[in-house]
Design a protein around this nucleic acid. Structure first.
Lengths: 160, 160
DNA sequence: GTAATAACCAAGTAACTTACTAGGTATTAA
DNA sequence: TTAATACCTAGTAAGTTACTTGGTTATTAC
């Protein structure tokens, strides 16, 4: 799981789907326009989301994608895990006895942290962002926050 | 901020420092051995940590790095922000009026999520992992957790 | 004061990821 | 039958990762 632009694309696209989940399937063309993401790149991301059973595709005119489950059963952690490149652990493999003792101590500590973070993100569902018919924003301090936010999760600028 | 191998290197190295912060500065050569990270790569990472005032370098024999602040004043969020590549936001810049209304709604929702995550990681300090003279592990369910963990934050395997 | 030890610095690189383009095929509604 | 859409494969330039090489300072121990 990574917190990069790709994960952000997946999450924001799923939010779009969640917001519009009453009005039938939503086409990738629409999401592409909304989010300023290339259609083909969205297709690739949605291919992964579909394989993870988070969305369902509907072909033909008027088709598109819809959420495969109720909004309160789709978590941020699930979306990010689905979108990200598959990750392969070579050192330790989570085994208890990885090079025994101190050497792997920080590895264990990192796992503890990872799990805490996973729990945190797995507790947040799309329903936490979307309340019909109006969007309910999560409470958030205004000014102290904005400085951090702008330097954290926003996309890297690319020359076109 | 990203949750990738680089951030993991930085965090685990800082954990190493925190664990040994009583016995004087710790050399990168030691950390390199402990964590199986190349010395020169560590130097690059520590250069960033030093510029972020998280560590202090001590030159000469017996030298190394030590934490620049008490362990309860260094957060995971700070470490990851310091280690990661600088990120530049081109769309929205956090402005309230970015393309007005629905178009940027999910962007706002993503910011809310980012901030929540930042708060979460900024609440965890190195002291939460290290308690002298013994290490205190964070509580963590055993079996249900391990499957997730192994596929989440561990390094990508690379052919050498 | 010389040698060893370490931080500190800069440049280069192969493998990989990102974000995108191009060019299709398959399915379905009108 | 046509158009709209999902769905699929291959390619690519730019950026990141993780590392290598080859230095230069600063400090301690002898």
């Amino acid at each position: 799981m990574k917190l990069s632009t790709k994960g952000r694309y997946a999450v924001t696209a799923m939010m779009d789907l969640a917001i519009n989940h009453r009005t039938g399937p939503m086409s990738l063309a629409d999401i592409s326009k909304n989010q300023s993401i290339s259609l083909s790149y969205l297709e690739q991301i949605f291919s992964k989301l579909r394989k993870a059973d988070l969305v369902e595709g509907v072909r033909g005119p008027g088709g598109g994608y819809r959420l495969a489950r109720p909004i309160n059963q789709i978590t941020i952690a699930q979306i990010m895990q689905a979108a990200d490149v598959s990750i392969d652990s070579t050192q330790c493999l989570g085994a208890e006895d990885c090079s025994s003792g101190d050497r792997c101590l920080t590895h264990k500590l990192w796992e503890d942290l990872s799990f805490k973070l996973y729990e945190f993100l797995n507790d947040i569902t799309l329903a936490d962002f979307v309340k019909e018919p109006k969007i309910r924003h999560m409470r958030m301090p205004q000014d102290s926050a904005s400085n951090y936010i702008n330097t954290m999760f926003l996309p890297i600028s690319r020359a076109s």
